[in-house]
């Protein structure tokens, strides 16, 4: 079976919407219904967070969701079961995002095999160094056709940008600012200049812009410079305030896409 990220980007080159949420948040069993509803509402890629006790790249909103999920009892093995159940109902690509330590303790090889078997298409591990990837992940990921997505930021050098493009499969995660997640409401001139450099560079992979995408304006702005954008903290915040998850998700995606 072909990698669903590859398939998606073959068909869709613009306005790709990826939405991040933390597995096990707000309730332990919400992982499945959130993913299903997101896809129904028009989300192209589901990015599911593996909660971690010390998420240093994340701002307060996602930190809090990680804590709630862990307090709810979320574990990697349960998360993979939930993904498997979700996979049987959606055909959109599923990407797992998490920190390295839980993956290490689960066992790298076992994790990759079990993730693939659960229907996962790609991984984002922000604290995975390139060398560690090449030594311990790459061969297995390639043989499983599991994408690994690396990050770049406004301060990433040109040389390193090319390295990120070489290492990544599926897509590249362009972080919009030098910041943790959930930190801004609009883009400034420096960011737009940086997006312009993303647009003009020739990439092997499609580029998605993430961090600071919180409304229709920032989403459509990001899409002008890339294949699409990733929303995380703004969605978690919407879930946090939600009384009816399905309704919240429908409205959230519509507003983001400018259809409301």
């Amino acid at each position: 079976m072909k990698n669903r990220l590859t398939e998606l980007f073959e068909k869709k080159k613009k306005d790709v919407l990826a939405v991040y949420y933390t597995a096990g948040y707000p309730s332990l069993d919400d992982t499945e219904v959130i993913g299903k509803t997101l896809v129904k509402a028009g989300t192209d890629i589901i990015e599911i967070g593996i909660p971690f006790s010390d998420p240093i790249a994340d701002g307060p909103i996602i930190q809090a969701s990680n804590k709630v999920a862990l307090d709810n009892g979320m574990q990697v093995s349960l998360l993979l079961e939930q993904v498997k159940a979700l996979r049987s109902q959606v055909s959109a690509p599923i990407v797992l995002m998490g920190y390295l330590n839980p993956v290490y303790q689960y066992g790298i090889h076992k994790f990759l095999i079990d993730a693939k078997a659960a229907g996962v298409d790609g991984l984002i591990l922000p604290d995975l160094p390139a060398k560690e990837y090449e030594d311990n992940f790459k061969a297995t990921c390639e043989s499983l056709d599991l994408s690994v997505i690396f990050l770049l930021t406004p301060t990433t050098s040109l040389e390193r940008r090319n390295k990120v493009d070489q290492l990544s499969t599926g897509f590249i995660y362009a972080v919009s600012a030098s910041s943790t997640t959930g930190n801004s409401k609009s883009f400034d001139e420096n960011q737009l200049h940086y997006f312009e450099t993303l647009k003009t560079q020739k990439w092997r992979n499609p580029v998605l812009i993430g961090f600071g995408i919180s409304n229709h304006e920032t989403f459509s702005q990001a899409c002008q410079y890339s294949a699409g954008a990733i929303v995380g903290s703004a969605f978690i915040k919407a879930l946090e305030q939600s009384k009816d998850i399905k309704q919240t998700i429908q409205t959230f995606v519509k507003v983001l896409r400018g259809n409301l």
């Binding site: 240093i56 604290d127 990050l151 930021t153 990120v164 972080v175």
Partner: peptide
């Protein structure tokens, strides 16, 4: 050095 890209530079 297991750090996110944001800390790399």
């Amino acid at each position: 050095a297991y750090i996110p890209e944001m800390l790399y530079p």
